[in-house]
Design a protein around this nucleic acid. Sequence first.
DNA 1: TTGCAATATGATCTTAATTCATTTTTACTG
DNA 2: CAGTAAAAATGAATTAAGATCATATTGCAA
Lengths: 230, 230
Amino acid sequence: MAQSTQREKVAAKEEAILDAAHAVFSESGVDGAKVSVIAQRAGVALGTIYLYYKNKAELLDAVVARFWQRLTQGARDAVSGKATALEQIDALAHYHLSSILADMPFVGLTSIVRIQPQADSHHISHVREYVRVFDQIISRAIDRGDLTNPPPLWQMRDLFYGSLEYMARTLDLNQKTFDSSAVTNLTRVFQHSFFGASEVRTTVSASAADQILARLDRIEAALTPKRIGT
Amino acid sequence: MAQSTQREKVAAKEEAILDAAHAVFSESGVDGAKVSVIAQRAGVALGTIYLYYKNKAELLDAVVARFWQRLTQGARDAVSGKATALEQIDALAHYHLSSILADMPFVGLTSIVRIQPQADSHHISHVREYVRVFDQIISRAIDRGDLTNPPPLWQMRDLFYGSLEYMARTLDLNQKTFDSSAVTNLTRVFQHSFFGASEVRTTVSASAADQILARLDRIEAALTPKRIGT
DNA sequence: TTGCAATATGATCTTAATTCATTTTTACTG
DNA sequence: CAGTAAAAATGAATTAAGATCATATTGCAA
């Protein structure tokens, strides 16, 4: 700890406690994690933990909160470069799956937080913030008219995150690493079920090329006055 | 307890303990549940619990095991009357969603069991048995040739159960009861993404077409000031 | 350097899981 | 039906871990 100000020292210690707690919770589960071990790992005395967090449950809350915050930031970054809704969905799915896979033991824990009768309002608001990344992608696509006759947003959201969490569990259980086919297929589901206009599904694919050509013609025509940069 | 034989008495007492445990775990969560309260609720002395189960964790395991067994039986019954794969999927989704909704506080708990380092092999095998109902529907459909070029079974399975669990959580969170549109839309996703639309994926180089479409989307997005008609 | 407020410590307290010596019930025998 | 040995049940005592708090240490300003 080579911090100058007191504030920095305190912040660093808080970080150390959260890091230790994250590790110990991941290794031993919530019940198995001993506060004394967390304290030891963080290089502070047992009582110090209770200076920063009221009890074990609040410590877990803090670790979970930090987890969601980081995840949210990462998700925004992952999506930012992509143009179309489907590309964004694909990028988000890729990011989400690889992120939770990288932290599986901890992710298993987070569902626990929900159980605590009180105080999960924090938790919920963090999750809300996180899934807003997805919601915005879809909302924009709907505004743009990309989705014809879409189901309620929450159903698409639950389909997306529910599928990915379960896939992550399966991959983890089978000692597999990231599987890009899972992401591709999920994106494809979105494409076929929600994005693809009803005609794409009903009429035959043979006309796909014709459709594309027709659309290119339309775009080209629309572009003639204007110019597109690289 | 008006049982005649000793065996029946013991079985009845075991049932009573499991019932009490199920209730108390649901009400208070795993940590909050006191074994003494469970014992009281079951009408036995504290020590008696430990005659039937080695510790609290094993008691939870037993409750969870019974939960999965009942769920499996119910799922088989729910599917048995239906003829086509899509009807069976719809019936299973309906059954699964309403079942876990009816027992949400407990369902939240079950994910915990996975955390315990040891002994979840039981748990996993129960879950495997349960999801076999789904797997068989899909396998038969594949054999029958209903699915052309399907994704791996586990991905469809995780999509199915993951979506439903998340939908259940959302409904529960919003104090909603069963929502049949959620089931309908999930079934529709299966129909459009896996069952129908065989040509789309098989014939035309799907990836190439997708890439072109994605690029068109990007171009179209870049044109946002100008609107392109259909 | 001194004094004081902010921090940190870990022995102590408390609560709840688990054990086990004792009691009660059951089932069998003469 | 009494006697009795095994099985089942009990709850006081033990143990483990979370939480508290009186005391000690540190950082900072005058």
